[in-house]
């Protein structure tokens, strides 16, 4: 009985030392890397959110700049559109783009655009209300 208890204590101590070693060598780094992977994934979501806001602001600014530049270059429609086209740099998505429809040209993205209105080769107005409505 005495021997059994001594063996039990010895086994218990060996197991304890083994567990500490395992903790330091395997469990701790793996727990750290799991938390780090989680943080990376969540951090990426935050970065996406930040980029979304930056994209929104950049698009707004570009459209405002186009509106003001067109106004400054107008009212001649050719001069106004030249100024607009100079600022329109189409990216890989094919936007921003200028789409003509009757006497109106919509400039921007599907969810964010300004409208230039023309009449008799003159630019008669710029509707930037979509940029204010947000």
């Amino acid at each position: 009985m005495k021997l059994n208890t001594t063996v039990g204590i010895a086994i218990g101590l060996v197991v304890a030392v083994g567990l500490v070693a395992a903790l330091l060598a395997v469990v701790k780094p793996s727990a750290k890397s799991a938390a780090s992977a989680w943080k990376k994934a969540e951090g990426a979501k935050l970065l996406d959110e930040k980029r979304d806001v930056e994209r929104t602001l950049a698009r707004n600014n570009l459209l405002w700049e186009i509106a003001v530049t067109a106004k400054k270059s107008g009212p001649d429609s050719v001069a106004a559109m030249e100024a607009v086209n100079a600022l329109l740099v189409v990216d890989s998505t094919g936007y921003p783009k200028a789409t003509a429809e009757g006497s109106r040209i919509t400039v921007g993205w599907p969810d964010r655009a300004i409208v230039l209105e023309f009449n008799n080769r003159l630019m008669t107005g710029v509707d930037a209300s979509a940029l204010v409505a947000e």
Binding site: G12, L19, V20, A31, A35
Partner: peptide
């Protein structure tokens, strides 16, 4: 006592560490 220590170490290793880092 030694066995209880072992049990605590197992818990700490498996659950506690992960929870701390998380």
């Amino acid at each position: 006592g030694v066995f209880l220590l072992d049990a605590f170490l197992v818990y700490w290793a498996v659950v506690g560490q992960k929870a701390d880092y998380m």
